[in-house]
Structure formats: structure tokens, C-alpha cells
Simulated assay, not measured.
Amino acid sequence: MTDHRVAVGIINYGDYRHLPACLDSVKRQTLPPDRIILLDNQSRTDEIGPIARAYPEVQILGMQDNLGYSGGANRIIREANGGEDIVLLNPDVVLDQRHLEELILAMQSNPGAGAVGGKLLLGDSQVDGRLCGDAPRILDTTGHLIFRSRRVIDRAHGEPDVGQHDAPEEIFSVCGAAVLYSRSMLEDIRIDGECFDEDFFAYKEDVDICWRAQLLGWTALYHPAATAHHLRGWKRGDNRRRVSRLRKYHSFKNYFLLMIKNELPVLLRRDVLPILRLGMCAMAYVTLAEPALWRSVLDLRRYWPRARRKRGIIMARRRVSADRIGRWFV
């Protein structure tokens, strides 16, 4: 393996309980990162202090405000100013020992790759390994699927891991819970100094960055040899009323921002019926079940001018055909 500089960035918001397991797994890597940066949103001194003392090698950025995933990721990318590629992690992810080495090998073997993600499994690795016996492990994500309606899901989420996703392949986008981004790609797609769009704040920002990268000619890879466990707090199929209002607000808003910024007219015309069908179902659900979410639609007026301007920049720099993008919408 050639010399490859990589920084690991962890974006935390109140999840101090899982941080030690996450940090320990980073320290155990067969290919250690050059830097470990922990960004702590709305940092609590009494909680982050013990972490800082236990892990003196970790650079901690304590934020007074909550920058969200997007703002936190941008701050980490700026902080890692030595040209390193960037691995971003959620604090509830535990990496298997070869995770970083496998991601870097995949990126080195595919020079056009802008993002690489591995096989994420649900739950804690130590608990799963001790209690499950011969039962198959449960998949969390093997990359994102995007439908013609532009609905996005984690591929294979909740399925038993029985080898159905054991082959490396190109995918549309990588889940931001554990992902390696090429520094060259990040610099190429930057708009107004932002790699991640901070209007997204959180949720679907990982889809947005990969969609933009695809438009500019970069690829995203799924590399199953890089495995990790994700203690995801909310799972598909859970009661939606358990999901925080903040998450639902940003998820709903960001569904529209994704299309405003990245949609190609020819593909919009092709898929207008499934897009309208999902939109009408979503509006009916909001009206009948959660009318407070209408705020996310009304607030689009505030985000619209910036999203349109960013769209103009993206489309002016687009390097690929509509057919190449359209193949991902299933």
C-alpha cells in the first residue's frame, strides 16, 4: 500500500455513552489514522472532559452550538488541512480492525472513487458475537438505494447477512455513519467553501454530497471487506411517532432540497409520476397525521434562493450524462 494520509472525524451530539467504544475501535485499526478529530456539538464540559483525559491523542473540538452533521463535517474537513482523506463516523459506530485499511485499499484501486463505504451491521460487535451463535448477523446498510420517486433507503437494512452483499460494487451513495471521502473529491465539489451543504443541517446530507459528486463524474463504492457495527437509534419499520420532530423536519425539508439542487430535467420528466405519487402521499400524511411538519414545506421559501444558486453552479460543472445518473433510480 502506498503512503496514504487519512484523518478520522467523529461528529458527536450528546452521545457520550458510545464514544469510548468508537474511539477504542479507531485506535485498534491495522492501519492507524494520521489524526483523530472529535467534534462535540453543544459540548458539555462534564461529559467531554473525561473523554479528553482518557484519549489525549484525540483532537477535540468543543462547539458551543449544534452545527449538525453538515456543519460539523465541514469543520472537521477544514481542521484536517494537511491534505488527508477524511473518514467520518457517527459516535455509535464500532469499526472492525481492518476497516480503515480496507476502505483505503478500495479507494487506491479505484482512482475515480470519491466515497467508499463498507458493510455496516446492526448492534454491538461484542454483544452480537457472544450471543448470536450461528444466527446470521443483521445488516444495517450496504449503501443507499434511490427510487424513481427519489425516496432513499439504506439497502438491505434489517436483512440477515447471508452473503447476498459480499461483492464490491459501485453504488449511488454511502451512508454517512461510516464513510471515507477522497480529499480530491471534497475539493472538487466544494461550493462557497462548503463540502457538505449546511442548509441540510442533518439527514440526507450524505445523499446530497454523493449525488453532487456523481454529477461531477466521481463514483461511490461499496466495499464489504470493511465491516463495522452501528448502534442505530431509529430503524426502518419503527413507529414514526418515536422519531424526533427535528429529524422529521429536516428529513422532509431535505427531500425537496435534494431535487431542487441535483435533479436533471430529462429525468424529472421521465419519473414525474412516481415523484408526484410520493409527494401527494407525503402531503396527505402530514396534513392528517403530523400537520406541524408543514413548517418544513413552508420553510423551503427561505432555502429556495440559495438552493437554486447552488444548482446553477452544480449544473455548470456537470461532467456526466443523464443516462449515467438515471441508472441509479430504480
Rank of each mutant, 00 (worst) to 15 (best):
V58R: 06
E101G: 08
I153S: 07
A292P: 00
D46T: 09
G117V: 10
R150D: 01
R241H: 13
V58Q: 01
G279N: 15
K235A: 09
I313G: 02
L100C: 09
R245P: 02
E84R: 01
V87C: 02
K27I: 04
P136Q: 06
T45S: 12
Y181A: 00
G62P: 05
L268M: 11
L215P: 03
D34V: 00
I37P: 00
V26N: 00
E170T: 09
A307L: 04
K248F: 05
D46A: 13
A225P: 09
V320R: 15
A7Q: 02
D34P: 00
V6I: 11
V8I: 07
R311N: 06
A73P: 05
G143M: 11
L105A: 15
L145H: 10
S182H: 04
D161E: 10
Y222C: 07
D188V: 03
Q29K: 08
R137Q: 15
H165V: 13
N41M: 02
V330D: 13
R75D: 07
V87H: 00
R190C: 15
V127S: 08
L95R: 02
S109R: 14
D206V: 03
Y303T: 10
R130H: 12
A284D: 09
E205W: 05
L121I: 14
R247T: 11
H229I: 11
G326C: 12
R98A: 12
E101T: 03
L231T: 01
K27C: 00
R327M: 10
V152W: 02
L215F: 00
Q42W: 06
S321C: 00
Y249K: 08
R269M: 06
S184E: 15
A225S: 13
G14L: 04
A7V: 11
N74W: 08
L268P: 02
L268C: 07
R311I: 05
L121D: 06
I60C: 11
P224R: 13
E170R: 15
W218E: 01
I76Y: 14
L19A: 12
E187H: 08
A21T: 11
G143K: 03
G118V: 12
I153P: 00
A213V: 08
E205I: 03
V116C: 04
H18D: 14
R240Y: 10
G233D: 06
R183K: 05
A228R: 02
L264S: 02
G279I: 06
G158R: 03
S321G: 12
G82P: 00
L180K: 09
A316T: 03
I146E: 05
A167Y: 01
L139V: 15
D323F: 02
I189M: 11
I60E: 07
N90R: 06
P20G: 03
A80S: 14
A322R: 04
P33A: 07
S296H: 06
V207R: 01
H157S: 10
S109K: 14
I191C: 14
F172Q: 11
G68Q: 05
S296R: 14
P33H: 07
F201L: 07
A113G: 04
D323Q: 14
D85C: 03
S184G: 15
G82N: 08
R53Q: 15
A106L: 04
T287G: 08
V93K: 06
D206W: 11
L257C: 06
D206E: 10
D208A: 11
A7N: 01
R295E: 12
D24I: 03
N66H: 07
L120Q: 12
E194R: 13
G123V: 09
G72A: 08
